[in-house]
């Protein structure tokens, strides 16, 4: 497992994925800061032309809990795409670069290689969540968000971001399975978009509390005060378990012809 981990981490570290995902998360943090600036200074924002005639930002309170909630929502919505693309890349690149065949007849077990891919993606996505949180805190302090940033407020806010990140990472395992079975990036990306759309529709229909792909956004507070049901959290765990197991099973049992 150690060999597989070091190999996967080296591949990830030397790719363009870290820079691209950091850039995307930076845009997310900047967008969060922009919304908070508008909430704090609606008059100045209007003078600067930052607000359109139909802007609706009244729900964002100028407070730390509200800002942390916004960062959690960015983790859920942006994360499913950014984390998802990381996972799709981890698996899809082996087929795009025709290197998958070199991983199949080695003393290192195929299951260890698949597990290392998921582990490397998870660690990187958690580091992105750390970066988003740190960048958010810096932006928040710079903007002078009112109210004391007490330890309980910070712990609750950071906890919410990280639980959202973990839930989001868990649902992206499905994209690893799709990129493997589909032998490339495109099937993984297609499933990613299907998940984003389905999650929105199911949440709009009122079943998001238990639908695994809607759970991260609901936990982040995107749909208001109503959080996911315990069944929803369990469904995320079950789905991740099934996706990881199925991915390992596919690498282990499928005919690798290409």
């Amino acid at each position: 497992m150690k060999a597989a981990w070091s190999a996967e981490w080296l591949k990830l570290r030397r790719s363009r994925v870290p820079w691209m995902t950091v850039l995307a998360i930076s845009v997310g943090a900047a967008a969060g800061g922009l919304f908070m600036f508008i909430s704090l200074h609606p008059g100045r924002a209007g003078d600067l032309g930052l607000l359109g005639a139909k802007a609706q930002l009244s729900t964002l309170e100028p407070s730390w809990p509200s800002f942390f909630g916004l960062l959690a929502q960015i983790t859920a919505v942006g994360g499913v795409i950014i984390f998802g693309i990381t996972v799709v890349w981890m698996f899809g690149r082996e087929f795009a670069d025709h290197t998958a065949k070199d991983l199949l007849a080695l003393p290192t077990h195929r299951a260890a290689i698949v597990a290392a891919k998921f582990a490397a993606a998870t660690v990187w996505c958690l580091l992105l969540a750390v970066y988003l949180t740190a960048a958010g805190l810096g932006i928040g302090l710079l903007l002078g968000i009112p109210g004391p940033l007490t330890v309980p407020v910070a712990a609750a806010g950071v906890g919410r971001i990280f639980v959202t990140a973990v839930l989001t990472i868990a649902i992206t395992t499905l994209f690893g399975l799709a990129a493997s079975v589909g032998r490339g990036y495109l099937p993984g990306v297609a499933v990613l978009f299907a998940v984003v759309f389905t999650a929105q529709i199911v949440a709009a229909l009122g079943y998001g509390a238990w639908f695994p792909f809607s759970v991260p956004a609901m936990h982040a507070g995107l749909t208001g005060a109503d959080g996911p049901s315990p069944v929803g959290y369990a469904a995320v765990g079950a789905m991740a378990f099934v996706a990881v197991t199925a991915t390992i099973g596919w690498w282990q049992r499928a005919d690798h012809t290409g």
Partner: peptide, 16 residues
Amino acid sequence: ELTVTENLTLMARLKH
């Protein structure tokens, strides 16, 4: 994106 040496080192690790 890896050099010749890195590609071989990676494979050497996987081959223990």
